[in-house]
Design a protein around this nucleic acid. Structure first.
Lengths: 245, 245
DNA sequence: CGGTGCATTGATCAGAATCAATGATCGTGG
DNA sequence: CCACGATCATTGATTCTGATCAATGCACCG
């Protein structure tokens, strides 16, 4: 699995001075994809590998934003809370995603491990210095930010204007696309997060998410497989539902 | 007003070779704020000033993203449509805002003039070339993107988890803050956009927005002044409503 | 003065939330 | 190894917020 590959030392070349990142399985997905061996070593020099267990906090909204992260394995949930406890999950990050673009002086949201998570952690100031040295990297970051903004727009459409059914189907399709992007299959889709996480991501309640899954099963738009994986038998049909034709 | 100042030639120094941007009243608000006179001239060389009338399209979702814009006056609405016509307004841009960070090859959303709008338009390729030359500018853009992402997160909380009342009050407070940022007063707040625009921004209907305004008036949380401006008599109280304590 | 577009208000409806119970899954310890 | 408890998911009954349908009001402009 990705995590193991990432942590594996470069055994094929034991005496070499290769950067540990050279063996990183998610490198091409991550911001590191644009770096050559020289730059990778600079990056590696300021990176620390960490693991988190399910439900561990990774960053806390409002705290001084001292660290940035590259997710190398597992799933992370980002969320914000209202004072009375209402929660909005603003996104899920997986292998290759970068955590920490959206920040000012302090973190704008909290992040927790959904399952077993591995990350590369960077001290903010050090990464910023490196950015000055590596314009490639800065461009890549800008591109990432741009992509995230596009995704954020889509999520606004979902939250503001879609029905429960459209929301759930859109979510499943997005997961499927992401799974393909990181080199996996389009179906079945893995759901490492709970119904409550999904609900808080889609602006629904757990009950409504559950009912919607059941209804989609009944109409055979989806099938539940062992391990809670969700099979998507007809992408065309699902796209139609998701966009509300 | 901002628009006039912006279009005014540098009369104080008629024979000078100053960049027209030097007289731009929104320069410090915009991405140009980080540029010195030399760089400003380079920027000016690739900029075109344009005006748009209410309801004019500025960009269309899906079209090739050939231009980027700096808003120098007026208000712009950004939105996405679902196939059946449901609309989500994803943001309003005003003086100093930059239009075009969130794009891939094509525009991710449409933009229209709400009232009379003036912009600086850049050909994308030319601006990108300039970015390579001016690392300041690229950093600034990254900072902007970062801010926009933070705002997008807030909007997700609003859309996914706030009540109609909380949404409307949050919106009024955000407008008030923005008005202050660009050098105006915190109250009263101007509302150049229609109830339908507000509704589509907040994930509500015009009727609900209207009713919510009425209810806020009745409880004296807001006051309507001539010209449709909205006075906010007690920020503390409104903040409390907006965050749902 | 009349018409057009936008805002407000009212009556009713519906989709999702809430309240409540039951069922499934999993880890733990007897 | 099974039983128990805990956590999470599902399903059902009911409520409620905001949507929809419908009418009226208001302001601006020709």
């Amino acid at each position: 699995m990705a995590v193991m590959k990432f942590n594996r030392p470069p055994v094929a070349n034991p005496g070499s001075v290769m950067s540990p990142c050279a063996a990183c399985s998610v490198r091409d997905l991550s911001i590191c994809g644009v770096l050559d061996e020289t730059d990778l070593r600079k990056m590696a020099a300021i990176a620390h590998n960490l693991r988190f267990s399910p439900h561990d906090p990774i960053i806390d909204e409002g705290e001084s934003a001292n660290f940035l992260f590259n997710i190398t394995g597992g799933t992370v949930r980002l969320y914000k809370l209202l004072p009375d406890g209402r929660r909005q999950v603003t996104g899920f990050l997986t292998s290759g995603d970068f955590l920490g673009i959206a920040l000012n002086e302090n973190y704008a949201y909290s992040a927790e491990a959904v399952d077993d998570v591995t990350v590369c952690r960077f001290v903010r100031g050090k990464l910023e210095n490196l950015l000055d040295e590596l314009p490639h990297l800065e461009k890549r970051l800008l591109g990432l930010a741009s992509n995230e903004l596009v995704q954020a727009q889509d999520q606004m459409v979902l939250l503001g204007r879609k029905t429960a059914k459209e929301k759930v189907v859109s979510f499943l399709l997005a997961l499927s696309r992401r799974q393909e992007e990181v080199g996996g299959v389009a179906t079945p889709v893995m759901l490492p997060m709970s119904r409550a996480d999904i609900a808080d991501y889609l602006g629904l309640t757990t009950e409504t998410v559950s009912r919607t899954f059941s209804s989609l099963k009944r109409s055979q738009a989806i099938r539940i497989e062992e391990g809670g994986k969700v099979a998507l038998p007809d992408f065309e049909a699902l796209e139609t539902i998701a966009e509300g034709y």
